[in-house]
Design a protein around this nucleic acid. Structure first.
Lengths: 214, 214, 214, 214
DNA sequence: TATGAATGAGCCTTCATTCAT
DNA sequence: GATGAATGAAGGCTCATTCAT
């Protein structure tokens, strides 16, 4: 019968590995659709998103699209999931490598975000669209809020450790600093006529403010 | 008269004062419409903006609305103008009082923005909507870019003066710092579940990073 | 602004006379639409009713149709109103002339219904469609139930008077007899391959059963 | 086998008994589908009938359903067959017992119909839907017309015999009376807010009209 | 200037039906 | 026989915009 959209989004990467080959293809199909939708949102905004265009871009019939996503709404949620995972994965990857000092970890994290902002601004543009939309869409809000909380927690951990090691300024409030970093990056994607170099240097200067200058 | 929408975006506040008394009422009418549109964008986003709703909210017929704004597009530009002036006016007001040190000026500026973000988040929400939209709408981009440049120039001036007076850190790059401040505030409006106090303290801490600690 | 569908259907013939000329034309337009819908239901059933076809048949744009009837549902209710009034009016007209004996009144009533069933079977076919639909549509049920109650009351009045005058069988239960008459006519419209003469004679015989044979 | 839908409408109950055991299961499957469709028509009308829902209710895949019924149209015809047989069987059962006077036979017949109308109104509701549809569907018309003719013939037989035995009114026209009875019952199912007791008493009174009162 | 009726392109979604496995 | 993915033609409804009055 119809696939229950609700269950799909909650499948995490691990589950998908275990899934039988049959539904693996099905999951691929969903991915194709989500990617098509993502691309269209990036270029036309959620406002300009048309299910027909998504289907066309994914190389399938409009009916098929609705077979996988019973609603445009759900499709958009699928895009949110995609983005969140896409960025979350990166954070995990970063935390995978140990041995590094908190300063180095934070540096890499910020450098990575800066890189993404420059190389794949679409992701952030789409993210912006979705954040704005989340104000009127509970489902999206939930997902994004969760991701945001994870991000903040990650930053706080790094900051706390760095402060303890006397690498970051002693008067740094970890939570507020995390907050500031997050705001800074979210805002960076709203900068008009953003320049790559300018952003990198701004981020670097920002990073400097956090360090302990003895 | 202003029926000719094409001239409108180039009109600044002064011009409007000078306008003949006859069309003053006409201008009021436009304002009502813009305000109605603003309110609707705040609650439903540009995506959810319907000319009919705007007309209804402004207490007029849909036909009448089109008499003042020949296009939905132009109406939105009207909203952009409105917002830009609304914030610009504030900056001017702030700079009106002299005698204050750059640190005090910046502090007041930041405090003011923080207050607005907390008290009238709609303005920022709408601003966010419009910034995102500006990526696909040249006319909007132009207006916002102009306002952004003005803002940055203002910040740079304050920062330069403060650095010269050894009030701000000597190693501060004025342009990048202005950039950071702007990003921070733009991003703040995208924070999910923003808390008033948290924002105030984050802004305060941020401010502290700029000061010279000898 | 939009016309409130709810108010229109409740306007009865008198009110419309009083209404300003402006909305009289508007009411005409609604009538055209309802007639078009009626015709289409008659030939294709409610199931086959397409708003686009209705608009085309009424010689107007689909958007215009929705300007008058905000919903297909409401349009159908409009048809129900139309039919109910169409038949109700007839009953009133019949009762207008006095001087007749109850037997004559009933005879004319039945003869009239029979005639309609033969001459304009569409009305009854559509009625049948709507009655069936009323089981799943409260709004329609209400209107039809009201009309039904009126009809029954009318029949009971005639019957009671006739019984008192010893014209109808003394053992006639007015309510049940009215019920029987109503069922008979409703059922007549469901007869397959209905023949005019056959129906007339059946109705006549039925009528005979009600008379007092001393 | 019966996969060939074309032959199906012409199969009568006996043929099905004779069918090879192998396809008996197949026939069961068809029955399940028809029953599911019947139930759905009862609650949502033919208009609301969805092949997918039917399949779901019958606990099978939509593709499987189409294996048994190549078309929605044919499925509906299957329902018509089912109903006709369901009611026809009853009539035969009634006529199975002899020894009874025509008055008793008719009484039992009417009582039985009344009972069904009260206990299983769905059957009649569905019947109504199908009769209406028969006006636009030759195949359905044929089946229903056949059943109707059988019913009328049955009634005429009983009536004629009763008249000859001076049990029914002498002036009764058998054909017209049968016609009246049939109309009455068909119409009874269209009564809004039908009450069990009311119907029974109306039917009883109706019955009384047919009797010879010397 | 104001009104509201009219237009029509277009959008989301549904649903009967097919087909490869 | 059974499954479920795929198809595509509609269908109901919306909405920016126009125009006669």
């Amino acid at each position: 019968m119809y696939q229950d959209d609700n269950t799909y989004p909650h499948m995490d990467a691990e589950n998908m590995q275990v899934t039988a080959a049959g539904s693996a293809g099905s999951e691929d199909r969903r991915q194709e659709i989500v990617l098509a939708a993502f691309g269209l949102i990036a270029s036309k905004g959620v406002e300009g998103l048309r299910t027909r265009d998504v289907a066309a871009r994914a190389g399938m019939n409009i009916g098929t699209l609705y077979y996988y996503f019973s609603t445009k709404e759900r499709l958009i949620q699928g895009v949110v999931d995609y983005i969140v995972q896409h960025i979350a994965v990166v954070q995990n990857a970063g935390s995978g490598a140990a041995e590094k000092t908190p300063v180095e970890v934070l540096h890499q994290h910020l450098a990575h975000l800066t890189r993404m902002l420059i190389d794949t601004p679409e992701i952030f543009r789409v993210m912006g669209e979705l954040i704005l939309r989340s104000e009127r869409d509970q489902a999206i809000y939930q997902i994004l809020k969760q991701a945001d909380d994870d991000w903040q927690r990650y930053l706080i951990n790094v900051l706390v450790e760095g402060i303890n090691q006397r690498l970051f300024r002693a008067d740094l409030d970890p939570a507020l600093t995390a907050h500031a970093i997050m705001s800074f990056f979210k805002g960076a994607m709203l900068q008009l006529g953003l320049q790559a170099e300018e952003l990198e240097r701004t981020a670097a200067q920002f990073e400097g403010w956090l360090l302990d200058r003895r």
